[in-house]
Design a protein around this nucleic acid. Structure first.
Lengths: 194, 194
DNA sequence: ACCGTAGGAGAACGACCGTTTTCGAGAATG
DNA sequence: CATTCTCGAAAACGGTCGTTCTCCTACGGT
């Protein structure tokens, strides 16, 4: 009845793996560290994920889904199309401000393993494509020209890496300022073309 | 007299190390691979660089200096302050178009080792700071407000990671377009304030 | 109470990595 | 020619990693 541990074994493994992989990098984390952090014995660990590669893949896929879901949830608290676009950068600021923030897990994984593992490279690419599609929707709803999407992507990606390396969340503010300017220019462009 | 190999041993090691570290990631490359690629025996290799860590540090420092020197050289072929700013993104396009382009070596190294090695983290931060200072100079000469610098940094960094993961140099064009818009807005801002 | 089985803790194994050492071939010196 | 020294090729060493295996405990069914 009263489940003290509401998590399933798979979740406990993934939680530990995510914290370690994201926090220290994938190659720096051994299966033994995941075993210790999760409390799941090595035998069960390999019954659940038959290899480290599959565990890495599961870590990336789960993080991908949750990241985009959290972003969309935050954006959904705003109504106006323009505010929804700018809210993306507010959410980035909150993310960058987290204690454990260490940059984008997909950029990091790609830099570390993209040349070695086609799977990791594909997942990173798919994640960035999904993010771009999400921004494209926001841009379309705001009646802004499609090229604004590519520019907003650059601001967001640049903010992630700059915030990670510099260690401050400020890049999110600068990105938001730039996004506001570009959004205004995009609207002016539409008006001019009409 | 007629030196068939004009390079010194240290240069041959660094050339091999750079190609391998940048192309495959640092942890994925063993000292034996560097020995094979450089043709320098392991003994001499360790006489020149007493540990892998020092070799990694030398790789990053040399790449840092050369990267900024090459960028400045390209920018110096332009005269007008505005064109010099935009030339940064033209140079990025050329860089992204290289066959061996695998993203920014410092972002990659930071993602892979930034949490483990303070030295790597510091070098990456110093590299990005130097890049920011260079842009700040270009911005100052163009009589644009200082906040434009931060926005241009984001565009450049975002273009690097997006180009790396997507595999096309196009993000450089989008960044240049956005930079043009932001530059115009910045000038308008200065005029308004005056 | 007994046996069979599942499951956990950790040893074991083979591969690899960073680093050091050995060894032998050749050049330099008397 | 004998001796010493240099230096490159590769073996060796200690450690770690991903993965498997062994053993032991504890429990369920009869």
């Amino acid at each position: 009845m009263s489940e003290v541990e509401p998590e399933t074994t798979e979740q406990r493994i993934l939680d530990a793996a995510e914290e370690l992989f994201y926090g220290r990098g994938i190659q720096s984390v051994g299966m033994d560290a995941i075993r210790t952090a999760s409390g799941v014995p090595l035998k069960r660990l390999y019954q659940t994920f038959p290899s480290k590669d599959t565990l890495v893949e599961a870590y990336l896929r789960r993080r991908d889904a949750r990241w985009l879901r959290d972003l969309a949830q935050y954006v959904d608290t705003y109504d106006s199309p323009e505010q929804r676009i700018l809210a993306v950068f507010d959410w980035l600021f909150l993310w960058f401000s987290e204690q454990e923030f260490r940059g984008c897990g997909f950029i990091n994984s790609f830099g570390e393993l993209g040349a070695t593992s086609q799977t990791v490279a594909d997942i990173a690419k798919a994640h960035k494509d999904a993010f771009r599609r999400y921004l494209a929707d926001l841009v379309a709803v705001a009646d802004a020209p499609a090229w604004l999407t590519d520019q907003l992507v650059l601001l967001a990606e640049g903010a992630m890496t700059t915030a990670a390396i510099s260690g401050t969340p400020e890049p999110a503010r600068h990105a938001k300022d730039a996004a506001r300017t570009l959004l205004r220019a995009a609207h002016a462009d539409v008006v001019t073309a009409a």
